[in-house]
Simulated scan of single mutants.
Amino acid sequence: MSLVAVLTADLLLLAQVGQRQAVGQLPAAAVRQQQHRPTPQQTLAADAGTTAQPAKQPVKPLGQLHKPNLFVVTRKPLTNELLRKVARLQGVAALELADAASIMLDDKRVQTLAVDPSTFRAYTPKVTAASDALWNNVAAGDVAVSFVLGSDGGLSLHSRVRGPAGPLRIGAYATTGFGAVDAVVSREVGRTLGLPRDNALIVSAPKANSDKLRRALLKVLPKGTQTAMVNPVLPPAQAKARTWAAGSFMSGEQITVALRAAATKLGRPYVWGAEGPDTFDCSGLVQWAFAQAGVRMPRVTHQQWLAGPQVPLAQIQPGDLIFWRLDPTNPGYISHVAIYWGDGKMVVAPRTGDVVKIAPVSTRNLAGIVRVSPAAAARVR
């Protein structure tokens, strides 16, 4: 689950933790008060089961939802002074601090956030935010993983997985809405896992131009800070569909190279998070195959959705990307991708236990078809 690039060796461009106050009400003390609140917890995608450990304090009820618009990850902890500068930027309505890093879960490298469940929940999709059971499980010590990591990655609900500091229980399948984030733990658990502190920030600014605010953030925050737009707010002139010239798209030669490259990997196993050359997940296969044709594709599915204009299914051509929405915890989320092969077939890396194959195109839960523009793909952040 991105929006998203690795910052340093292990740090990722994803973030959120600690607090849900409107920025105009962010006193310095409150910024750091976001500490850990363990609590009983359960799960979104199935029944609760037993909680990981006794809870000290229940997770607070869901309050006002905040739509995240920007992700920020820094090389060093965000200070109160920096948070106040961000809070004063025009259009900023709410902030949420977090600890972010890449960790290993059952030999899978997973982009993980350590959060305060009571406040972070307000920045997630409505279905996820509303589940008291889910956030109680996280506060009690469980890890909540994305539906894609759980179903395609083979991490079974309520199972125990190997983590950096010992076993962790999968307490829920729940999508945060931040594409590259595939696991969420409490801040207490994050400490035991060695996550860096206060290196990530979610900014909610629903009335601000996201691109303009992103540039302002980079001026305020230290060198090396990375930002990514999510749920971007753009002015009408920027948001409306552009006219795509014929030269905007991949050449016939590039399409042939990408398809042939994908075909050389038929029979290779699906591995969640794998980018090749011997194992792949769905978006990893797309990125690798298109790279052989000189096209720089973003890494994760929801980013690849932005790699060009949508076209009607009736106009699909070889080399187009096919996208689906398969995540019941976030029905609007783009969660799967394949490459159209032609003749009603696609090249796809399906899920754990399967292999790269050519298969008939399925239209169930189809999100749409995207014709790749190399220039547009290279701009996606």
Results as ranks from 00 to 15, higher is better:
residue 150 G to C: 12
residue 186 S to N: 14
residue 159 S to T: 15
residue 151 S to C: 00
residue 200 A to L: 04
residue 210 S to A: 15
residue 176 T to W: 01
residue 221 L to R: 14
residue 203 V to F: 04
residue 169 R to P: 01
residue 223 K to W: 01
residue 158 H to N: 14
residue 190 G to T: 11
residue 167 P to V: 12
residue 210 S to V: 13
residue 156 S to A: 15
residue 221 L to V: 12
residue 208 A to R: 05
residue 197 R to Y: 00
residue 153 G to A: 07
residue 180 A to E: 11
residue 220 V to I: 15
residue 219 K to G: 15
residue 152 D to F: 14
residue 172 A to R: 13
residue 216 A to C: 03
residue 147 F to V: 13
residue 177 G to P: 06
residue 153 G to Y: 02
residue 210 S to K: 13
residue 223 K to A: 14
residue 189 V to S: 05
residue 207 K to S: 14
residue 156 S to H: 10
residue 161 V to G: 05
residue 216 A to Y: 00
residue 158 H to Q: 14
residue 168 L to G: 01
residue 204 S to R: 11
residue 217 L to N: 06
residue 153 G to S: 04
residue 208 A to I: 06
residue 193 L to G: 09
residue 223 K to S: 09
residue 194 G to T: 05
residue 172 A to E: 02
residue 225 T to L: 05
residue 205 A to I: 07
residue 150 G to W: 04
residue 219 K to D: 12
residue 218 L to N: 04
residue 149 L to C: 07
residue 201 L to Y: 01
residue 209 N to M: 06
residue 179 G to Y: 04
residue 188 E to C: 04
residue 161 V to A: 08
residue 226 Q to W: 02
residue 148 V to D: 00
residue 219 K to H: 12
residue 183 A to I: 11
residue 201 L to I: 13
residue 213 L to K: 11
residue 187 R to E: 02
residue 185 V to Y: 00
residue 168 L to M: 12
residue 157 L to A: 06
residue 223 K to C: 00
residue 166 G to V: 11
residue 176 T to A: 10
residue 182 D to F: 01
residue 218 L to C: 03
residue 219 K to F: 02
residue 221 L to Y: 05
residue 184 V to E: 00
residue 188 E to S: 12
residue 180 A to K: 08
residue 201 L to P: 09
residue 164 P to Q: 00
residue 195 L to Q: 00
residue 217 L to S: 06
residue 160 R to T: 10
residue 192 T to P: 03
residue 147 F to S: 10
residue 153 G to E: 00
residue 213 L to C: 12
residue 220 V to K: 14
residue 149 L to R: 06
residue 209 N to G: 09
residue 156 S to G: 09
residue 195 L to S: 01
residue 212 K to M: 10
residue 147 F to Q: 11
residue 218 L to T: 07
residue 165 A to L: 04
residue 171 G to H: 11
residue 199 N to W: 05
residue 183 A to C: 10
residue 209 N to W: 02
residue 206 P to S: 01
residue 203 V to S: 08
residue 224 G to W: 06
residue 147 F to I: 03
residue 208 A to L: 07
residue 162 R to D: 13
residue 204 S to G: 12
residue 162 R to V: 14
residue 214 R to T: 08
residue 206 P to I: 05
residue 191 R to M: 01
residue 171 G to R: 12
residue 164 P to Y: 00
residue 185 V to L: 09
residue 176 T to E: 00
residue 173 Y to A: 04
residue 210 S to N: 05
residue 180 A to Y: 08
residue 213 L to Y: 04
residue 194 G to M: 04
residue 150 G to R: 12
residue 171 G to K: 13
residue 209 N to Q: 06
